[in-house]
C-alpha cells in the first residue's frame, strides 16, 4: 500500500511541481490550498505525511501543526514544514510545535524526496 501525502501550500506552481514529483515516486497525493482545508483533509484522510507551508491564508502552518499535535488521533502523522522564511527562529518554532522535519524553500527535489522517505521510514 502506498503512503498517502498531503501537500498544503497556497502557491499553485509549487504544488504542481511537488505533486508531479511525489506521484512519479509512487505516492498517493492530496492537496490543500489553505490552512483550514489542510487540517480538514488531515482529519478526514489521515495521511502518513503532511508537507506544510508556513505562510498560508486562513490558518498558517504553525497553527495547523499545533492543532494536529493536540489531536491524539493524528499522532502518527508526520509533519514536514516547508517555508520560504529560513530564519533560525522559524525553524525552532516549527520543531518546538511538534514538526518532524523542516525544509527551506527553495529546496532540491532530491533532498525533499530523501527527507520524505526518512520521515516515512522507507
Amino acid at each position: 500500500m502506498s503512503k498517502k501525502i498531503l501537500i498544503a501550500d497556497d502557491e499553485q506552481n509549487i504544488v504542481i511541481s511537488i505533486e508531479f514529483l511525489l506521484r512519479r515516486e509512487g505516492f498517493e497525493v492530496l492537496i490543500a490550498g489553505d490552512g483550514e482545508e489542510a487540517l480538514a483533509k488531515v482529519r478526514a484522510e489521515k495521511p502518513d505525511l503532511v508537507l506544510l507551508d508556513v505562510m498560508m491564508p486562513k490558518m498558517n502552518g504553525f497553527d495547523v501543526c499545533q492543532a494536529m499535535r493536540a489531536d491524539p488521533e493524528l499522532s502518527a502523522t508526520r509533519i514536514l514544514m516547508l517555508t520560504a522564511k529560513g530564519r533560525d527562529t522559524e525553524v525552532s518554532k516549527g520543531l518546538g510545535l511538534g514538526a518532524d522535519g523542516y525544509m527551506t524553500k527553495p529546496f532540491s527535489t532530491k533532498e525533499l524526496l530523501a527527507e520524505v522517505r526518512k520521515l516515512l521510514e522507507m
Binding site: 502557491e11 522564511k85 527553495p106
Partner: peptide, 25 residues
C-alpha cells in the same frame, strides 16, 4: 527583508523544482 526574501524564494522554489524535474526525467 523577510517579506522580500519570502517573495523571492517562492518563485525560485517553483523554478528550481520544475528545472530539476525536467533535468532528472
Amino acid at each position: 527583508m523577510s517579506s522580500v526574501t519570502h517573495e523571492l524564494r517562492t518563485p525560485l522554489t517553483s523554478i528550481r523544482a520544475f528545472s530539476e524535474l525536467l533535468r532528472d526525467d
